[in-house]
């Protein structure tokens, strides 16, 4: 397992979650303590163990491709912070 020197600025960028300097410093210190626990996992031999992503005996749940009642356009847009006609409105993405 890797050593813990989290590049918080880089991770924050990946998460699209800018942090203040104070937040970064505080989280770094707190992660240090948490990783004292997390490092214990390193002691386990899990080479031949399969990974559990979820616990229920289901896979590839399928259903017929049928049109059923759903939200109206107005309902779906009711919480939009900004809209234009039938669209969600956001700042320009492509120049």
């Amino acid at each position: 397992m890797a050593d813990v020197a989290i590049d918080i600025a880089y991770i924050a960028k990946l998460a699209r979650l800018p942090l203040t300097d104070e937040e970064s410093a505080r989280f770094s210190a707190q992660f240090g303590r948490l990783f004292d626990f997390i490092r214990e996992l390193q002691a386990l031999d899990v080479e031949s163990v399969h990974a559990t992503a979820q616990v229920i005996p289901l896979s590839n749940v399928m259903r017929d491709d049928e049109i059923k009642p759903c939200l109206t356009q107005e309902q779906a847009l009711a919480n939009a912070p900004d809209r234009e006609g039938p669209y969600f409105k956001a700042p320009r993405i492509l120049e």
Binding site: A2, I38, L41, V46, V49, H50, A51, A53
Partner: peptide, 12 residues
Amino acid sequence: AYYVRAQKVRTL
């Protein structure tokens, strides 16, 4: 190192 290992411990 982290996520997959944790999922394996979950199996255990």
